[in-house]
Design a protein around this nucleic acid. Sequence first.
DNA 1: AACGCCCTTGTAATCGATTGCTCACCGTGG
DNA 2: CCACGGTGAGCAATCGATTACAAGGGCGTT
Lengths: 336, 336
Amino acid sequence: MDIKEIARRAGVSTATVSRAVNRIPTVDPKLAKRVWKVIDELGYVPNTQARALVSGRSRIFGLIVSEITNPFFPEIVQVFENTAVQYGYEIMLSSTVHDPKRMELSVRRMIERRVEGVAIMTFGMEESVLEHLTDRNVPLVFVDVGPARPRVSNIRIDYLRGIRQAVQHLAALRHKRIAFITGPTGLKSAMARRSAFIQSMKEIGLEAAPELLAQGDHTVEGGMLAAEKLFKMRLRPTAVLCSNDLTAIGVMRTAFENDLRLPSDLSVVGFDDIRLAQFVVPPLTTVQMSQSELARIAFEALLNDVERDTPAPEGTEYRLETNLVLRNSTALAPGK
Amino acid sequence: MDIKEIARRAGVSTATVSRAVNRIPTVDPKLAKRVWKVIDELGYVPNTQARALVSGRSRIFGLIVSEITNPFFPEIVQVFENTAVQYGYEIMLSSTVHDPKRMELSVRRMIERRVEGVAIMTFGMEESVLEHLTDRNVPLVFVDVGPARPRVSNIRIDYLRGIRQAVQHLAALRHKRIAFITGPTGLKSAMARRSAFIQSMKEIGLEAAPELLAQGDHTVEGGMLAAEKLFKMRLRPTAVLCSNDLTAIGVMRTAFENDLRLPSDLSVVGFDDIRLAQFVVPPLTTVQMSQSELARIAFEALLNDVERDTPAPEGTEYRLETNLVLRNSTALAPGK
DNA sequence: AACGCCCTTGTAATCGATTGCTCACCGTGG
DNA sequence: CCACGGTGAGCAATCGATTACAAGGGCGTT
């Protein structure tokens, strides 16, 4: 059933039907009403691909995340989708699973569907394959790592703020040996968190000794492994700050296995504030980086770029703060 | 840049370009090579909407879940998407957040984009709005609750099997007072789990007393609330079986707050086996219902229906088992 | 009464592919 | 030498919308 059918039954031309459907005010209300009646009766729904073809606008945004099964992302997907729907957009979701091949395939698929913009939430891996998109002038939004080009936006995250709060919180609780478990070395955002930790420690005259910087990979398993190493040290750290919440959950798990009580024997702080953080035992003190804010900003960045016809030559920047959220996984250092 | 441009530069007709792109064997290899060269040089990518328009096939499947932020679903999304990509399909994801209005809107959007099939993973809520889809002969796949109609598949879940294993496991550990925390009353799959529990208890001569059936809602908070009630009873249950893992996590959390040690003071069993279940403290014994299997079956059901021209009049049925996975949240009943 | 303008509606081109049908060309067999 | 079949390429219709432009009708003005 197409627009012609409607036109025939309503006794008007397809142009009029199209105008009625798109609520163009110049159509005679009488006619419009007749058209709508037929549309309702037949349950006509316009074909988006036909529309997209002639208008040149797909009304689709791409969303590339590194792993949808990482609890950090579903919230982003949810908010991004909600916002998109509000503006009449659809989203094309793709999970790269940290694989450049898959990233490339995703980009290809998105170009085939003629996305009008893409949000890249991989936090700094494999952006090289994206030149196909920039070549085509597709608006992009990155977190921190986008190049300064027209139609490329960046959401700058203030990692230092939240991490500094976390470090000072631990210091206030008399912790001196504070360990940090990093994320994957290749991940820019993980490196930024690490630097923020080192700087925050320096600021208050504490040493971020190399042996207190353990290597993690932003998974629970990685957190467990790193924690095992830390717990084997002669002088065990009394507090652990983690590059993300999953890592912190791993630490908590290993602490449990080693009969360390939280928070009395060990304080743990996470990063991200995934929803789950408030439900673990004990509820996790963590640095919040609002996923819903991030998603909302990303969407708006794309929308702005799509509607702008002369883009800023260096792209646009947005900011997102981070803040410590106190729960129950931190306490006075043991023996103090 | 379109197919005409390629045709012009390669000195052939658009028909030949189209045939070369689609690897139709009748084109002269010489010509095909020439066409491919131009395509590579210009970075031409065919326009999917144009293709979809003429072929009448969007190569999009819809996937409706109740809440993407529920950790049960991301794994499904991941596997569904992977499989789809393998077969050259795209997926349109939608999260209803248990709201019939949003479900209706999703369906509308999917019809606008002319999806070729829809997987409905809401486990039994609000399927009424789906008649727009069945009217249009769009293949559907449900979990348990789909009507018996052509082009409607059902994945039947054997809840009883896994739940019986769980109940017998607890009974073997000498638990007698075994509580069950249900899911939302309106959710068919939750009701099925409840019935399976009652039946399993009866089978081994234990009573599923009404006061041991607590009302939950498949969220952590719901689990906490239900657990609080159960813990206030004069004769506290020694084991709790939960309608899903989130509920179980809530119970563990409340147990912790009430200084109940797991598993020595209380045994807890979940349902679903979300990935997180192995990472909580202690690792959760739970009934596995494989999310990746579920997603794979759902995709295949749709694919089968799309390719079949004379569908089975009563739809097709698929089966999925459930099985208990032993971890460390269960132990001998206290005092035994 | 005639002219012209404005407002609404319709005709037809267009978006970018696919594909049925026609046609040209080649080789083969009578 | 001609007819015929087979093969591969091109022309043009088509999918379902939007929209530039043309056309027609009504009304005000002179």
